[in-house]
Measured scan of single mutants.
Amino acid sequence: MSIQHFRVALIPFFAAFCLPVFAHPETLVKVKDAEDQLGARVGYIELDLNSGKILESFRPEERFPMMSTFKVLLCGAVLSRVDAGQEQLGRRIHYSQNDLVEYSPVTEKHLTDGMTVRELCSAAITMSDNTAANLLLTTIGGPKELTAFLHNMGDHVTRLDRWEPELNEAIPNDERDTTMPAAMATTLRKLLTGELLTLASRQQLIDWMEADKVAGPLLRSALPAGWFIADKSGAGERGSRGIIAALGPDGKPSRIVVIYTTGSQATMDERNRQIAEIGASLIKHW
């Protein structure tokens, strides 16, 4: 067993022997301040990774656009098919120029040779490549099948209805392509620590998230040296922004954090800054 596999296998073990965790309302004060600064709703939840206990939450059962955070769930569904012998990570998928959609920095470079399922998941999570996500959605049967996968996990809230990039439209009061912070946090925890996926697939999923290259201005910008984070960000229309993450000190994750916002007129930089400040408060009061 590799060191990384050992780390993920012992996530519940280490967490069980940690000192009790206590909620700190100071972080919620910052979440509410972010709402004021952005002029928009902000949803927040913080779960203990081992027990699933909610440590703090704000608007945990209000719907927010998922945006690209759905790509972690998508690759979880792909990995479940791999575990069941219905898919192979090494299978190569070929596609054409007509398949390319807006923001496809990886797939646009491989029109000639195609990409493997493993490479597509890596591109979808680490670079948020939209064509990679659409190609992977095709392998599982489309958005409705991802929703069905989530329902089978016990998540009857999260739903995907459309493809990239239309799913980022974020129309107010439109339930399409949305989740709730509580539902997303619980589902992410199941994917990373539950028995739904094999140990190898859980490790692969967290490795992809740990290698995320496009979430630097968010929670990662607030992390002290030595902290662990595996995350996936999302951005959408109407001032929408979000991030889902597993993080913790001492090089291992111990909490799940989900943050979503929508309806702001603020710039992307300002949305990023507010999420980073929430992260800084979380870490300060850990």
Rank of each mutant, 00 (worst) to 15 (best):
H24F: 08
H24T: 12
P25I: 12
P25Y: 14
P25T: 12
E26G: 15
T27V: 15
L28N: 07
V31A: 08
D33Q: 15
D33N: 11
Q37Y: 13
L38T: 09
G39P: 03
G39V: 10
A40E: 04
A40C: 06
R41Y: 08
R41L: 09
G43D: 03
E46P: 03
L49H: 06
N50R: 13
S51E: 11
G52K: 05
K53M: 15
I54S: 07
L55P: 03
E61S: 13
E62K: 05
R63F: 07
F64H: 02
P65V: 04
M66W: 00
M66R: 01
M67T: 12
M67P: 02
F70H: 09
L73D: 01
C75L: 05
G76N: 00
A77D: 08
L79C: 04
S80A: 14
S80I: 09
R81E: 06
R81V: 07
D83Q: 09
Q86S: 15
E87I: 11
L89P: 07
R92Q: 12
R92V: 14
I93G: 03
H94D: 09
Q97D: 15
D99F: 07
S104L: 01
V106L: 14
T107L: 08
K109V: 12
K109I: 11
K109D: 11
H110D: 05
H110M: 11
G114L: 03
E119I: 00
E119Q: 12
E119N: 09
E119Y: 03
L120S: 04
L120I: 05
C121D: 01
C121A: 07
A124M: 06
A124T: 13
I125C: 08
I125Q: 00
T126W: 03
N130P: 01
L137H: 01
T138L: 14
I140E: 04
G141T: 05
G141K: 07
P143F: 04
P143Y: 04
P143I: 05
L146R: 01
F149I: 12
F149C: 06
N152F: 11
H156V: 12
V157Y: 14
L160G: 04
L160N: 06
D161F: 02
R162A: 05
R162E: 04
E166V: 10
E166M: 15
L167M: 11
E169S: 12
A170S: 14
E175C: 12
R176P: 02
D177M: 02
A183Y: 11
T186C: 14
L188E: 00
L188I: 15
R189S: 13
L192S: 05
L192C: 08
T193I: 13
G194N: 11
L196M: 14
L197Q: 05
L199I: 15
L199E: 14
S201N: 10
R202H: 07
Q204F: 08
Q204H: 12
W208Y: 06
W208M: 08
A211Q: 15
D212F: 04
K213A: 11
V214R: 06
L218S: 01
L218K: 02
L219H: 03
L219P: 04
L219S: 03
A222K: 14
P224W: 03
G226N: 12
W227G: 01
F228V: 08
D231R: 03
D231E: 06
D231P: 04
S233K: 03
G234Q: 02
G236I: 02
G236N: 07
G236M: 03
R238L: 11
R238P: 09
G239V: 02
S240K: 05
S240T: 08
S240A: 13
R241N: 05
R241M: 04
G242I: 03
G242S: 08
G242C: 06
I243Q: 04
I243M: 07
I243F: 06
G248K: 01
P249M: 09
P249V: 07
D250L: 12
P253S: 10
P253T: 09
P253V: 09
R255L: 06
I256C: 07
V257Q: 03
V258C: 14
I259A: 04
I259W: 03
T261A: 11
M268H: 08
D269C: 09
E270M: 09
R271D: 07
R273K: 12
Q274S: 12
I275V: 13
A276C: 10
I278L: 09
I278A: 03
I278F: 01
I278C: 02
I283R: 05
K284A: 13
K284N: 11
H285M: 11
